[in-house]
Nucleic acid binder design. Structure first.
Lengths: 232, 232
DNA sequence: CGGACATTTGACGCCCGTCAACATGCGTGG
DNA sequence: CCACGCATGTTGACGGGCGTCAAATGTCCG
C-alpha cells in the first residue's frame, strides 16, 4: 500500500473522465504493491479484480502441465490487467520489477462502465490493441526465426519505451534471459547466443545487464522479418 | 447476395435482442456470399464493416514480407469478424468453403451499440473469448511439439463441432493441409506425417479427405500437452 | 480419361534445444 | 573488506525434431 496521490494523477492522465467520473473511480480503487517475483494472481483464481499498472514491469504467463512456460505479455505502467477475464483468470501474473498497481473490483467497475461511455470506449480500444498485439505475436511464434524474434522484441521494447531520444536508442531490459526466452518461445541459450551475434554485427550493445543500446534500427528492422509490408 | 430469411433467424438466435433492436440491426445488415479461396478483405483495407458468419468456414491470416503465412484463426458460423479493428484491418480473411456472411457498417453499428447494453455485452464477451483463445494459441505456437499441436487442433475442432454424438467423434476438416500447417506453425509435410502416425497409433481415422474420426479422445488429450491442469 | 493439384512418403540437413562447463555478478556473513 | 555461495548469463559440443527438397501416389474435375 502507498499514497493514492500517484494513482489519482495517473487515472486523470490515462482515462478520459470528468471530475465526477474520476472521483467515482478513485472511490473504488485500492493500491497494491509487489516485490520482484511476487505473484499478483495465478491461473484459475476467481477474477474479482481488474488492475491498472501504475509503475513497474510484470509478466503475464501460461504454462503446460509439465512446466513449459510462455510469457504471454510483459506489462508496464498504464497497462490494464484482467480486462478480458470472465469468471476466472486464465493466466498468472508476476512482478518482474517492484511494481505498484491500482485495483478495482469488477463488481464496482462494471456499473461505472455502463454509465460512462468514454471510459467504456477507452477500455474497448485497449482490448482491441491487446488482441492485435496477440495476433502479431502469433505470427512471431509460429513463423519467425530466432534472429527475427529477438530483433522484433528489441524494436517492440524501443517503440514502447520511446522517449524522444534520437539514436542511439537506449532500452531498459528489466526482465532476465529466461523471461525473454519464454516470451519468444526460445531457450535462454538461444537468446544469449543471438544477442552475442547481434553485438558482433554491431546492431546492439549492452552497457549493463539491464539495458540495451540499439545501434542500428534500420538493420534491426531488416532482421525482424516484418519487411516494409504494412506498418498497420 | 441471398435472401435475408436465414440472417433474420440467425440474428435472433445469436443475439440477445428484443424485437425493435433486432429490426434495427436487420435494417443495417446486408448479405455477402463468397466462393472458396475468395477474399473478404485484405490486411490494410479500411475497416468499414463488421461481419457475422452465417455459414461456411473462413480463415483469418497474416503474412510476413517474404510470404510466410500464419492462419490466425478459422472462423465458422455465428463467429464475428472485424470487431477489434480500429482504422484498418490488420489481417486478411479468405473463404475456405463457400460462405455466407452478414455485413454491418461500423458507422451504423456503433450508435446501436451505445443504445443497447445487451448487444454490447454480447460482443464484449465474444471479444474476451477471442483474446483467451489467442493466448492459448500463443502457448501452442511457442511451446508445443508438432504432435501436441495436431492433437490440440483435432480436439479443438471436436469441441467446436460438438453435436451430441458419442464417440467415435466425427469431425469435418474443411481446410486443406496447407491451411492446417499454417494454422499450427508447421509444414504440410509435418502435418501429413503426424496424421499418419496418429492413424498408426489408432488415435484417428480418415473416412475421406475432409473428415476425421477421433477414435480415442483420452489418448488425444494426453498427447495435446495440456494435461489436467486447469480446464479453465 | 487426363492433367493439375493435394497429399503422402522418403532422404537429408539445419536450426535450435539439450547438456555441460565456465564466467560473472551480487548479497551475505565472517 | 573480502571470501564464499548461489543465481544468472555465456559459450561450446552434440543431437534431434522438424524443415527442405524431391518423387511417388492419390484425388478431383473438366
Amino acid at each position: 500500500m502507498q499514497s493514492d496521490a500517484g494513482i489519482e494523477a495517473l487515472l486523470a492522465r490515462q482515462l478520459p473522465l470528468d471530475g465526477e467520473e474520476l472521483s467515482r473511480l478513485q472511490a473504488i480503487a485500492t493500491a497494491v504493491a509487489l516485490v520482484p517475483q511476487q505473484s499478483l494472481f495465478v491461473s484459475g483464481d476467481l477474477a474479482r479484480h481488474v488492475y491498472l499498472v501504475v509503475d513497474g514491469t510484470l509478466r503475464v504467463q501460461k504454462s503446460l502441465a509439465d512446466g513449459r512456460r510462455l510469457v504471454i505479455a510483459f506489462v508496464f505502467g498504464s497497462d490494464f490487467l484482467g480486462l478480458a477475464q470472465e469468471d476466472r483468470y486464465t493466466y498468472g501474473v508476476e512482478a518482474v520489477t517492484p511494481a505498484q498497481l491500482c485495483r478495482f473490483r469488477r463488481q464496482h467497475l462494471e456499473p461505472l462502465l455502463d454509465a460512462c461511455p468514454r471510459l467504456r470506449n477507452r477500455l474497448r480500444r485497449t482490448a482491441s490493441s491487446e488482441l492485435q498485439r496477440a495476433q502479431d505475436r502469433m505470427l512471431l511464434l509460429g513463423r519467425k526465426t530466432a534472429d527475427e524474434r529477438l530483433a522484433s522484441f528489441l524494436l517492440q521494447l524501443a517503440e514502447r519505451h520511446e522517449r524522444a531520444e534520437g539514436p542511439p536508442h537506449v532500452v531498459p531490459l528489466p526482465m532476465n534471459r529466461r523471461d525473454i526466452a519464454d516470451y519468444l518461445g526460445l531457450t535462454t541459450e538461444t537468446v544469449s547466443r543471438t544477442f552475442t551475434q547481434f553485438r558482433a554485427d554491431g546492431l546492439i550493445d549492452f552497457p549493463d545487464a539491464h539495458r540495451a543500446v540499439l545501434l542500428n534500427l534500420e538493420l534491426l528492422r531488416e532482421r525482424s522479418g516484418d519487411g516494409l509490408d504494412l506498418p498497420a
